[in-house]
C-alpha cells in the first residue's frame, strides 16, 4: 500500500443553501486511479473542483501530502485538470495550448518541444501543432485538453469526464492509453465519470456518489459483487433487486421461497434487498428451476440474449447465450454465492 497523498475530511459544500457535497471523507493514495461515479448533479465536479482549488469547502479540510490546502490557489498546487468542457485557449493553436504550462514554468524550449511532441503522439494528434483549436472536432479538442494537462507531469491529474465526447472506439483506445500513462508515469488519477463500465474497467478504486453523499468506496470487484445498498446495485450495471427477509445467517427468503446464501450478520427476520446479476441466472426446465416463470421478452445483445422472465412476484432480467422464445415456461437457477443480500 502506497502512502496517502490526498485526504478529504468532513467536506461539505453548498451553493445558495443547496448542498452539493455532503460530509465527504476520503483518502487517496499515491499513484491510485480513483473514480467518482454517480448520476448527473451528484457532486462529482464539485468535489473535483475543491481538490483542484477552484472552490473552497464550506466545512472540512483538504490535505495534500499532509499539508492543509483548503485555501491554496490552483496555480500553487501540484495538480492539473482536464476540464469537463475542455476550456481550451481559443486564441492559440494546438501547440501553444499544450505549451502554456511549460512556458510559465520556463521549461527550456528544446525540452518543451520534446515533451509536447511526445504528448501529441500520445493523444494521436501528430501534425496538428499549427491547427487552431476552434477548427478541431469535439474529440480532438478533448485530447488537446488531456495533453495540455498531462504535459506538466503533475503529481495528481484531475479528469472530469474526459472521454465523454469521443466515439466508442476512440473512447476504448483512450481508456487504455490513460491507464497505461497513469501506470507508466506514476501519477495519481482522480477521474470523474457517470459511465459505470468505464469506472469499473479503469479504476483501482471506485467512489459511488449520490446526492452529494458517498454511497460506497471500494475496488471495482467489491462494488460490483458486494453493493452496499440498492442505489449502488442499481447504478452499477443492470440488476435484479428483490425485496426479501433474512431469516437467519445463510438463509434468505424471497419470491416466496427460502434460499441458501453466503451472507450473515443480519438481525433475525430483517427486511433486506437481494441483488442477483442478470448474468448469474441460468435458464433451465421448469421442474429443475429454483424459481419458475414465463419469458416475456427477448432482445439479442450481440454476445448474449437479454430475456425478461415474469415469475410469481418479480420480473427477472437474465443474460444468457441460451435463448428461450417468448411465452415459454422456464425455470431459473443460481448459486448461493450469486445472491447478494443488502440492508433494505
Amino acid at each position: 500500500m502506497s502512502k496517502k497523498l490526498i485526504e478529504l475530511q468532513n467536506i461539505t459544500k453548498s451553493y445558495n443553501g443547496v448542498v452539493a457535497v455532503d460530509n465527504i471523507n476520503l483518502s487517496i493514495r499515491e499513484n491510485e486511479f480513483i473514480t467518482f461515479l454517480g448520476p448527473s448533479g451528484c457532486g462529482k465536479t464539485t468535489t473535483l473542483r475543491m481538490i483542484g482549488g477552484f472552490e473552497e469547502p464550506d466545512e472540512g479540510d483538504i490535505f495534500f501530502d499532509g499539508i492543509r490546502i483548503n485555501d491554496l490557489p490552483p496555480y500553487k498546487r501540484n495538480i492539473n485538470t482536464v476540464f469537463q468542457r475542455y476550456a481550451l485557449f481559443t486564441h492559440m493553436n494546438v501547440y501553444e495550448n499544450i505549451a502554456f504550462g511549460l512556458r510559465i514554468k520556463k521549461v527550456p524550449s528544446k525540452e518543451m518541444d520534446k515533451r509536447i511532441k511526445r504528448m501529441l503522439k500520445l493523444v494521436d494528434l501528430e501534425g496538428f501543432e499549427k491547427r487552431h483549436v476552434d477548427s478541431l472536432s469535439g474529440g480532438q479538442q478533448q485530447r488537446v485538453a488531456i495533453a495540455r494537462a498531462l504535459v506538466n507531469e503533475p503529481k495528481v491529474l484531475l479528469l472530469d469526464e474526459p472521454l465523454a465526447a469521443l466515439d466508442l472506439k476512440l473512447r476504448k483506445e483512450m481508456q487504455i492509453e490513460l491507464i497505461d500513462m497513469q501506470k507508466n508515469i506514476g501519477i495519481t488519477f482522480i477521474y470523474v465519470t457517470h459511465d459505470q463500465e468505464e469506472a469499473l474497467t479503469m479504476s483501482d478504486t471506485v467512489v459511488v456518489m449520490n446526492k452529494g453523499v458517498i454511497q460506497q468506496i471500494g475496488t471495482p470487484v467489491d462494488i460490483y459483487n458486494e453493493p452496499k445498498n440498492r442505489f449502488v446495485a442499481d447504478f452499477i450495471g443492470e440488476s435484479n433487486i428483490i425485496e426479501g427477509i433474512m431469516h437467519e445467517d445463510y438463509l434468505v427468503e424471497f419470491s416466496g421461497k427460502k434460499f441458501k446464501c453466503v451472507d450473515k450478520d443480519f438481525a433475525k427476520n430483517e427486511k433486506v434487498d437481494i441483488v442477483i446479476r442478470p448474468e448469474d441466472i441460468d435458464i433451465t426446465t421448469p421442474e429443475n428451476g429454483l424459481l419458475e416463470g414465463i419469458v416475456t421478452s427477448v432482445v439479442f445483445k450481440g454476445v448474449h440474449y437479454e430475456m425478461l422472465v415474469e415469475s410469481q412476484d418479480y420480473e427477472y432480467m437474465i443474460q444468457s447465450t441460451d435463448m428461450q422464445p417468448v411465452g415459454s415456461e422456464v425455470g431459473l437457477t443460481f448459486n448461493p454465492e450469486d445472491i447478494h443480500v443488502m440492508k433494505g
Binding site: 477552484f54 490552483p74 496555480y75 495538480i79 492539473n80 476550456a87 481559443t90 504550462g101
Partner: peptide, 12 residues
C-alpha cells in the same frame, strides 16, 4: 473555465 484552466496550469 478558460481562466481556471490558466490558473490550473500555473498562471497567477
Amino acid at each position: 473555465n478558460v481562466l481556471e484552466a490558466a490558473m490550473d496550469l500555473g498562471a497567477n
